[in-house]
Amino acid sequence: MAFNRKNILSLNELTQGEIETILDTAESMKEVSSRDVKKVPALKGITVVNLFLEPSTRTRSSFEIAEKRLSADVLNFSSSQSSIVKGESLVDTAKNLEAMGATIIVIRHSMSGAPFVLAREINSSVINAGDGSHEHPSQALIDLFTIRQIKGGIKGLNVLIVGDILNSRVARSDIFGFLKLGANVRIVGPGSIVPKYFEDLGVQIFYSLEESLVDVDVVIMLRVQAERKSLEFFPSLREYSKFYGLNKDKLKIAKKDVTVMHPGPINRGVELSSEIANDPKSVILDQVSNGIAIRMAMLYLVSTGDKH
């Protein structure tokens, strides 16, 4: 299936076919990564800029490795070190990067929609590496890829997302991605961070973790913020953990072969008990190689995609 997109800005705007194309392409990319010489010349002569205006070592290094395996020339700009960014508008920064010959810009930004501003203003391809509380397409694609590997497919799976749905970009991308590939998606958490509007997106809402776990194939645990501002949403991490923390006993409610995933650094003892975090069955730490494969696929596909 052809992939005719210049940009990957959100999973919401991708079709089922396009998402599957990315996942299939990632399969071949994974094969590259298993070779002795982990390099293909697909992006030779192409400059990729990693514009990370919000710190994220994990995602940035993963993109950087992916870019290098595709033989791209890589430039890194982050908010702290680069003079190009200071005091300059996002649009000016983007135009400068374009003038410097950036063919693809991978952007991470603290505000929702920033990649759309970029895509509107410049001709370079834009890949969203996470924007505000909007989307984090590459992370959701990794989740889809990993689950497809483990379960053999996505269609018909019961997928549960637990935690701060309101503020999570991973949640949104996962919701769109899993729904498009035919899974049933449930969300659960305190009423204040599980907004009713998600129901209109085709998601089933729960407020009891126990009830939401019945018949579940996949659990995706979101990190909850421990900052003071989050106290508007729930009284304390202790209380959060009591109602929404996942432990072995609660997990028994789910299907026997349930897979537990956690996309970010976790608060041990809050979202997940250590016994689950350490369980080899839960796919928490081992997403690194899949991450590189997915990001190689995204970079490759936008570089070959339609340039209009």
Binding site: G113, G132, S133, H134, E135, R172, P195, Y197, F198, L201
Partner: peptide, 11 residues
């Protein structure tokens, strides 16, 4: 506006 659209857009 707070609603389905803001929810989708993460605004």
């Amino acid at each position: 506006n707070e609603g389905v659209v803001s929810t989708k857009l993460g605004l």
